[in-house]
Design a protein around this nucleic acid. Structure first.
Lengths: 157, 157
DNA sequence: TATTGTTATACTCTATAACTATA
DNA sequence: TATAGTTATAGAGTATAACAATA
């Protein structure tokens, strides 16, 4: 059990080479946050994207699958199974739209509303917990800067 | 071509339901940033993780694959092919370590150093461009907050 | 012709388990 | 017994192309 005293000795273990890039830190932070969030939403048998989709349907009842896809930047095709599951669990329904038989109006069920309310509270608690190292101002600033990047992205984000 | 005047009319198209969560915005911003970065690094035939790995090897020559995996939070197994490619392209070498024939000391080649310098400059230009909507203070703040989240993560990030 | 929902598919990323050779 | 590198594989997540029904 003798450490080598050659090139890189006790291995400093830093990512200084890339830690100066915002993008790299975005990725590392997202990985940490998503790991915790998956645990939290797992308790509701939801994934992050399912929670987001359910939330949009709750907030904007009647939205179409195409509309939902655009809002969340998710491919329409990848929403089909997701909504199949939310539908089979009785959380949302695909209601027919009068005047356009191609599209569905996505509507939350009472149970969908209830589950979403509970999940949203849990997600809020999760954010409070994992961002506890930032004070209220810092959290607000982080949120504001991220939203500014999206809003002013050079081609609509 | 008549829009339905039923449930959700002209489809407001907002993600207000989730846009208040930091995690959601982290994901959306990362997606935008990575999309642009992939374009930039594609010009060097590098992926984001290859660029990071090369950068760490350049900054910490002699690091082992396990050390690199830990620094970048990448599974050891997933580094093998990545380093195979960097190695076959003559950008890094797996040098034997005197005293421990299990491990390799990863070393950049002169060409690896050159490519990394060029790529790092391109990545810096990419960040300048995609974060141009933030002034210098805001960029520094964003970086600082992200690094703080990682540093103070409840179990080492 | 264009749009909505759908199916099938492929490709990347990431995670896990097991193996080998060395320590 | 533990560690470094490796292999194989499986599971997400995401992207693309094509189709049927409808506009």
């Amino acid at each position: 059990m003798m450490k080598p005293d050659t090139p890189q000795d006790t291995e400093d273990l830093t990512d200084d080479a890339v830690a100066g890039f915002i993008g790299y830190n975005l990725k590392r932070v997202l990985s940490l946050v998503m790991g915790d969030l998956a645990q939290v939403l797992g308790g509701f048998s939801l994934r992050a994207v399912s929670f987001s989709a359910l939330g949009v349907v709750v907030r904007q009842p009647g939205i179409s699958q195409s509309g939902l896809a655009e809002v969340l930047s998710v491919e329409r095709s990848n929403l089909v199974q997701l909504l199949d599951e939310l539908s089979s669990r009785g959380l949302v329904v695909r209601a027919p739209v009068a005047g356009d038989r191609r599209r569905y109006a996505l509507m939350p069920t009472p149970e969908g509303l209830r589950l979403h309310a509970d999940a949203a509270q849990a997600v809020a608690a999760h954010e409070t917990r994992v961002f506890a190292m930032l004070d209220a101002d810092e959290q607000a600033t982080l949120l504001r800067l991220l939203r500014k990047v999206r809003a002013d992205w050079p081609s609509a984000g």
